[in-house]
Simulated scan of single mutants.
Amino acid sequence: MKRIRRNPEKFEVIDLFTALGREHGYKLRVEEDASDFIERIGSALKASQDNPNLLHGKRVESLFAHVAGALGNCRLIKQEDSGEAFATEQDIQAPDYKVILKDGSQYFIEVKNCHFPNIKSPYPFRKDYLKKLEKYAELHGTPLLFAVYFSQHNKWFLLRKESLIEQNNRYVIDFINAMAKNEMSLLGDRTIGTEPDLSIELLADRSKEAKINDSGEANFIIGDVKIYSNSREVTDHIEKSIAFYLMRFGTWNENDAEAIFDEDEFLGVRFTYSPDFPPEEQRFSMIGELSSMVSASYGEKTVYERSVIALDTNMEPSVFAVEIPDKYKGNDLPLWQLIMQPNPEFKG
C-alpha cells in the first residue's frame, strides 16, 4: 500500500489561507492580510508544539493509518475529517478515517488515544459526541468503529459502539473489555507466537583485530550475522527477516549480551530474547500482535525519549511491517498465527 501523493505546498497552504480568511476577512494579494496569516499560523504552531496532549493525539491518528496499511487487509485508507463539507443535518461530525477492506466492506473509524496506566480505568466517550459521529455515518450508510490505542501498553483495539459500556451521559471502555471485544482482525491483525529463544550473533571479521578491552567493551568489525530459533540456525532470507523483526519489535525480553569465545579467541557477541514465562505444555510463546509491532517500529521515527518529534513520516506503511507470506511454512522458524475473534457477550 502506497500513499497517494499530493502537493501540500501548492494546495493546502492556499486552502488554509482561505479557511482563516473566512474568519478574519482576508483578501488575496493584500500584503497586510498575508502578513497576519503568517503571524497567526506561526503562533498557532508554537501553541500546538507546547501542547503534549495534542501532539500525542495527532501522532496516534497518523499512526493508525500506518498500522491499518501495514496489516495488509485494506484497499484504501482515507482521512475523512478534512476539507469543507455542507449538510442539511446539524450537529454532525466526520470521523477520522474511512477504510475499504479487500472484501469491499467499508467502515468509518474514529481514532482515540488512551494514556491511562491502570487497565481498570474506564476511557470515556461522551454521548453527544458519539451522536454526531453516528449521524455522519448514517448519512453515508457506513458502519462506525472506534480504534482505541492504549499507549501505555502499546495495544490497539477496534470496537463497535455496542461493545462500549453505557453510563448516564457517556459510554466507557476499559482495557479488559476492549481486549475481549476487539475486532482488529478486520484489518488483518494477528497475534504471533514462536519457539523460544530467539537469538542473534554478531560475529567478528576474522581478518580484522577483535578484542575486549579492560573495561569490558568489545571492539570488532562485524563479518557475519547469524540468527537462531530455539538453537536452530535460521538460514532462509525471509525467515531471517521475520525473526529479526520479532526480536526488535516483539515483547520478549532482551537478555544481557554474551561474548562468544573459542577458547581464548573472541569471536563476537550474542543477544538472546526470551519470554517472561517460558512455555511448559506447548512449544511456543506469544511474542506480540502485529499491530503493536508496527506501532513500535513507527515510534522509532516519531518519538524520542518519550517526546513526540514528528507526527508523520514520508515512509510507506510497508516500511513498518514484516512480510509473512500467505500459508507460511517455516523450516527453521515455526510461527503460530492467532486471529482473535471478539466475544460480544463478555462482561468483565
Rank of each mutant, 00 (worst) to 15 (best):
F146Q: 06
T18I: 14
W252D: 03
A65W: 06
L28I: 07
I119Q: 10
N177C: 02
Q49L: 04
L139I: 13
S292Y: 07
E281W: 10
N177V: 10
E254T: 02
Y228S: 09
N213M: 14
R29E: 14
Y245C: 05
I287P: 07
N255S: 08
P342R: 03
L101G: 10
L133C: 01
A210Y: 09
M1V: 12
F150A: 06
G348K: 11
F277Q: 10
K211N: 06
N182W: 11
F64Q: 05
N182K: 11
L187T: 03
N213Y: 08
D189P: 07
P342Y: 02
E110A: 05
S285W: 14
M286N: 09
Y304W: 11
E289Q: 12
K135H: 13
A65D: 10
E265G: 05
E254L: 09
G250T: 04
N168I: 13
S292M: 07
A310T: 00
D15F: 15
V234K: 04
I212M: 05
I92M: 02
A147G: 08
A70Q: 06
V67L: 13
I77V: 07
A204L: 02
F86I: 15
E281G: 01
V294A: 06
E305L: 12
C74I: 12
M315P: 08
F125M: 09
L290K: 03
D15E: 14
